[in-house]
């Protein structure tokens, strides 16, 4: 019989990952606006900083859920990003600094692309997991 809870959880994980992907795409769009001088760095950083902590919390909650529902492989998959976020929190460097933004723009865009790629991989993994759950029944 189909385990409805598991199914819904998997779909939830997939949607949550989509949200993370979209937020990263949005961040990248903000960066390209900045490079095109269509947005002021102060506004851009205020905008972005409002989303950065929720993103980290969201990701941490999702990973915790994997751990508590016994999906150890999915949890392990998320460990690298968790570690990166933990590093950012511990060094108090989550927020982007408008005064330094032009110096760090290259580095930050690279990080965002890497994270985007990571979320994409996660998306495939969750999708596979979802299909596997369905097929397995």
């Amino acid at each position: 019989m189909l385990d409805l809870t598991a199914l819904f959880f998997n779909i939830f994980a997939l949607l949550a990952d989509c949200a993370l992907i979209f937020s990263n795409v949005y961040f990248l769009a903000l960066f390209s606006d900045l490079e095109a001088d269509t947005i002021n760095p102060i506004d851009m950083c205020r905008h972005l900083n409002a989303f950065l902590l929720p993103e980290i919390i969201g990701h941490a909650v999702l990973s915790a859920l994997f751990l508590f529902t016994g999906r150890f492989w999915l949890f392990l998959l998320n460990v690298p990003l968790l570690a990166w976020h933990a590093y950012k929190v511990s060094t108090k460097s989550i927020r982007l600094d408008a005064t330094q933004i032009y110096r760090t723009i290259g580095k930050e865009t690279k990080i965002l692309f890497a994270k985007l790629g990571f979320y994409m991989v996660c998306f495939c993994a969750y999708l596979f997991y979802l299909i596997w759950t369905i097929v397995d029944e």
Partner: peptide, 12 residues
Amino acid sequence: ESQYGNFFVRST
């Protein structure tokens, strides 16, 4: 490449 002084870089 880089600027030094007291200012805020408002665009590139």
